[in-house]
Simulated scan of single mutants.
Amino acid sequence: MVPKPGDVLLIDGRASVQFAGDRALRLRVIWVCERPTYRGWCWVTGYCLDADGNASERREVFVRVAGLQKLLPRGRAGRPVQPWANRKVRTRGV
């Protein structure tokens, strides 16, 4: 999964050894560098998120794409956002 702006990622030891253990972070992606790097790795720029989902600092990290984990974005009440929940279902008469 190649990240894209707006994605919220868990970056831990699977993405890069420097983020193993308690150094893992949640990152809201704002930019992914398209320059070629080592196969399967990329530079990702984004904002680290605190426990409340607020941006705390801007970071640029070099990570293994296969180790990235996409998280569900959180709404204001701390619950996962469900974009389909507010849609009206239309049915056709038979």
Rank of each mutant, 00 (worst) to 15 (best):
P36K: 06
R28S: 10
C42S: 10
A85I: 09
A55E: 15
L10E: 08
P36W: 00
L68I: 04
L71H: 02
W41S: 00
R35F: 00
L27V: 03
A55S: 13
A85V: 09
G53F: 03
E60T: 14
Y38F: 09
P83A: 06
E60K: 13
L10G: 02
G93I: 13
R59L: 12
T45Q: 09
R74W: 08
L9K: 02
R39A: 12
R58Q: 14
N86V: 06
P83L: 08
R58V: 12
D22G: 06
G40M: 10
I30D: 11
A66P: 02
C42Y: 00
V89M: 08
Q18P: 01
V63N: 01
A20Q: 14
T91L: 12
T45I: 10
R74K: 15
L10W: 02
P83Y: 05
V2W: 15
R28H: 08
P83V: 05
W43R: 04
Q82N: 15
W84Q: 14
G78I: 14
R76E: 14
R90I: 10
D7T: 07
P3Y: 00
P5M: 07
Y38H: 11
A15V: 05
R26H: 12
T37F: 07
P3K: 00
G46R: 00
R58P: 03
Y38C: 05
G67M: 07
Q82D: 15
G46L: 04
G67F: 07
D12Y: 03
D7C: 04
V89E: 10
L27H: 00
G67L: 04
V94D: 11
G93R: 14
V8T: 12
D22N: 13
K4Q: 15
S56Y: 04
L71C: 10
L27P: 00
L68N: 00
A51I: 11
V44P: 01
L9W: 01
P3R: 02
C33G: 06
V63P: 01
Q82G: 06
V2P: 15
N86A: 10
E57Q: 14
V65N: 02
R64N: 14
P73M: 06
K88G: 07
V17F: 11
G13S: 09
V89F: 08
K88A: 10
C48I: 08
G93C: 12
S56F: 05
V2T: 12
G67I: 06
E57I: 09
G78N: 11
I11T: 04
G78L: 10
A85T: 05
L49S: 06
A20F: 10
A20M: 11
R14D: 15
V29G: 03
K88I: 12
G93V: 13
G6K: 06
S56N: 09
K4E: 15
E57T: 12
R28G: 03
G13M: 07
A51G: 07
P3E: 03
G93K: 12
C48T: 12
L71Y: 01
E60H: 10
G67D: 02
G75P: 03
R23A: 11
Q82P: 00
V44F: 01
P3W: 01
R76T: 08
D22P: 04
P80N: 05
F62Q: 03
